[in-house]
Design a protein around this nucleic acid. Structure first.
Lengths: 247, 247
DNA sequence: CGACGTGTTGAGACTACTCAAACCCTGTGG
DNA sequence: CCACAGGGTTTGAGTAGTCTCAACACGTCG
């Protein structure tokens, strides 16, 4: 009879195998050959699952690792001065958290789990060293950072040019797309974030988020019940998100 | 008597020497040892100066190189859909342009010179290859990208939480700081961008920019005459930029 | 059952936008 | 040398979208 503790340990080890991970086609080692993946897996550290509301790391603490989301979701919140918080990002499975901490060697925001969440910890010094001998890994790292910069620019455009309606529509179509890419339904999903989070992220008051959601519902674009979302007319939603010259 | 053409050629070559460049302490090779810098210089390509209004590259064209600004300034403009342009960044000397094109291998925006501008072209495949053998270069590249991500987050905060006054004040204090770091006066400088550019960047109408500048002037914070700027009270300007709970 | 967190709805206020017109440089051509 | 055109900038008046404040509804958990 096998020792249950060892069995559990082996199971945990197994879970960190990138080769068996369903996200491998989206995650950092995506471009790696099988033999290289072993090296990559060797530097990954397992983390116990985070409970809802738990912090992965806090703003200002020393930067040591980046993290790949394995399951669940997180938000990044930055507190500047004595002002109020700014929610700068939501992270879904396969996405890389913490890359913006490299420069100053401190995390520029607190990252909090929105639900039970598991992550792979990737110590950055080891990752950097490994990226020396694995050009594909290095390339993927450059691409990840570059993509995040592009996404940020898109967000800046949203915040400076789009109306509240367009922002919400963009938020939902973008979420839908991210779920689709990860193999989930693009039409039906559960929001792990509160209305307040959405508002903070999109630069809108909670009330505005709520109002517009109600209107979308009455227009037959979506069916929202609490945090449960059904997208009824993705086409029109995309149209709202991208309509121009509204201002 | 030396051939004037060769002389000119030699002068051009000389200008691309990082070791004699006044920006070396801010630029990409900042962390390199003298012997490594030679290797880095070997991959840099000289570009003829850009005239005001000329494009360094256009949105959607194939990504090949990143560029370090040597003198002058540029703006990055992204056109999405058939909507209007969004100005996503201004680039000053020593800053790196084009990093957001790595991911999709296409430049996500058109970058245009705001005045006569010289840049160093750094072919990315060569840079990537060199970053394999020069850990300091690789680290600096990671840091540059990470910093740009942090700056983007700060911009998102500005766009979603700050009033028009705060945005303008932030814009000026930030410019002032960037000039100071580059050895120019932090109090007196010439804007290379138009009011329209500033408005587009900050998510404000031109008229709003103009109005608030007039008010800042009457409040004794700055003296503005056309594109000539004198910061009279940097302290107060910073205070305006960071005041909280204004909304 | 009551309390709390979360979400919804309503009314009024305010910031920044749009439209419109005037102003001011700079360069150009007579 | 001046008149004039044209872009960029400033100022004014009215409007509209979003915020704030406030009350209320819903659901969950002790």
């Amino acid at each position: 009879m096998p020792d249950p503790a060892t069995g559990r340990r082996r199971a945990l080890l197994n879970e960190t195998r990138c080769q068996t991970c369903s996200l491998s086609s989206l995650c950092l080692p995506l471009a790696l050959e099988v033999q290289d993946m072993d090296q990559f897996e060797a530097i990954i550290r397992r983390r116990p699952p985070l409970k809802k509301g738990e912090a992965l790391f806090r703003q200002g603490t020393h930067f040591t690792s980046v993290f790949a989301v394995r399951s669940g979701s997180l938000k990044q919140v930055t507190t500047e001065g004595s002002g109020e918080d700014q929610l700068t990002n939501f992270y879904l499975p396969s996405e890389l958290v913490g890359l913006d901490g490299i420069d100053e060697e401190r995390y520029p925001g607190t990252v909090v789990a929105l639900e039970t969440t598991t992550v792979c910890e990737i110590p950055f010094d080891r990752l950097d060293a490994l990226s020396e001998s694995l050009p594909e890994l290095r390339g993927q790292l450059y691409r990840s950072m570059s993509k995040e910069m592009r996404d940020d620019r898109r967000m800046m455009r949203l915040l400076s040019r789009k109306t509240a309606d367009q922002r919400l529509a963009t938020f939902f179509t973008s979420l839908s797309d991210r779920f689709r890419r990860r193999g989930y339904s693009p039409y039906s999903f559960r929001l792990s974030m509160s209305r307040a989070d959405i508002g903070n992220y999109l630069g809108l008051a909670v009330e505005t988020v709520s109002r517009i959601l109600s209107r979308f519902q009455s227009q037959g674009l979506v069916a929202v019940s609490g945090r449960e979302v059904n997208i009824l007319d993705l086409e029109s939603l995309i149209e709202v998100a991208e309509q121009e010259g509204c201002r």
